[in-house]
């Protein structure tokens, strides 16, 4: 534990605070406008750290039998949702960690949660099924027509959700329940991200490629040659830059002009093991990346995808999540040993 307090970050990452949770930390997200950092561990514990001091404000344990699988803070920052192997989705109050509502979706694992931008809807997956709930955790819609376990979900509009599974991405209007679009591709899609305007759909594939579609034109492309599967993807706020993992190098594709087809992507090289987490700063061309070697790097990028490091720090184990504070002036990361770090970003 003592080594965690001795982190000497470099460059733009300034020493903040560090802490520890009970087991492998799987998620960290800022809440209450950046006043609080929530960290969930695989055993089903959630700790709320004071964003400035790192002091623990409240602490939950064993909230999901088996394991906690995912945690998502509501866009307004006051509520957060958790889900786990027990098939439950539970809503909590960020201020005190009190349970607000809960719903059991089934006997399968609930692996993915996603709030719509307005915060009106919460989507969750349970094996092959997708559920949409309102902000009180009441089911409003579900879809059972997926051929395999759902691997990713994302909101394309406030009332339209994208669902990725083996061989396809499907879009549903959650108000009337209609299937609005189906994009097919024979391959196992392991991750998905949409551009902020919902037009570009990017998926990492098990065969070590990134496939993307432009919904408006129907054009699709494949970027191959990754040494591993691109499980981590991130779009910047403008929808210009798509950062992808799948290697020790972060590959950044630029959608500027006619790109990224026919252009060379930016290669961000500093990590010594494959990327395990990626996040763009809000409203800025800054990217944070974490890797299996425990390294966390902040990068400044240009609109063509090229860029360089502006700061770096080292944690003790695989970085499982990185998260920018909403104002972009602090960065948090968690690792496989339960380590939690927050840095000020200058």
């Amino acid at each position: 534990m003592s080594e965690l307090t001795d982190i000497t970050p470099k460059g733009a990452l300034r020493k903040g605070w560090s802490g520890l949770v009970d087991d492998y930390a799987i998620a960290c997200e800022w809440a209450l406008g950046g006043d609080v950092l929530l960290v969930g561990d695989v055993l089903g514990g959630v700790r709320a750290f004071d964003g400035k001091s790192g002091k623990v404000i409240w602490h939950l344990t064993d909230i999901h039998d088996g394991a906690l699988l995912t945690m998502r803070v509501h866009p307004d920052g006051a509520l957060f949702a958790t889900a786990g192997q027990d098939g439950y989705v539970v809503l909590w109050d960020c201020r005190d960690g009190k349970q607000v509502a809960g719903l059991r979706l089934g006997s399968g694992w609930v692996e993915h949660l996603s709030w719509s931008d307005s915060g009106s809807w919460l989507a969750a997956t349970c094996s092959r099924d997708v559920f949409v709930m309102d902000a009180e955790c009441a089911e409003v819609w579900r879809s059972k027509d997926h051929p395999s376990t759902v691997s990713a979900i994302a909101w394309s509009r406030d009332d339209e959700i994208a669902v990725a599974c083996y061989g396809r991405v499907t879009f549903y209007d959650v108000v009337n329940g209609d299937l609005s679009q189906k994009l097919e591709w024979r391959g196992s899609l392991v991750s998905m991200i949409l551009s902020p305007d919902g037009d570009i759909v990017a998926c990492g594939s098990q065969d070590n490629s990134v496939h993307f579609w432009r919904r408006s034109t129907g054009q699709d492309s494949m970027m191959s040659g990754y040494p591993g599967k691109p499980s981590n993807l991130a779009f910047d706020h403008s929808g210009t830059l798509l950062a992808t993992g799948g290697a020790e190098t972060v590959t950044v594709w630029s959608f500027e002009g006619d790109g990224p087809e026919g252009t060379s992507p930016g290669h961000l090289e500093l990590h010594t093991k494959p990327i395990s987490s990626l996040a763009f700063a809000p409203r800025a061309s800054r990217l944070a990346s974490g890797a299996r070697d425990g390294s966390v790097v902040a990068w400044a990028l240009k609109s063509d995808g090229q860029g360089g490091p502006i700061g770096a720090a080292l944690m003790t184990d695989r970085v499982s999540a990185v998260s920018w504070r909403p104002d972009g002036r602090a960065l948090a990361a968690v690792d496989g040993q339960g380590g939690v770090c927050a840095w000020r970003v200058s």
């Binding site: 394991a67 692996e111 376990t149 024979r186 391959g187 196992s188 594939s205 098990q206 065969d207």
Partner: peptide
Amino acid sequence: EVFEMSNGCICCTVRGDLIRVLGN
């Protein structure tokens, strides 16, 4: 869940359920 790859190569075929469960 047996997942074939886009290239159709049978040696690239993997078990998606195992990747998910072991990954966890």
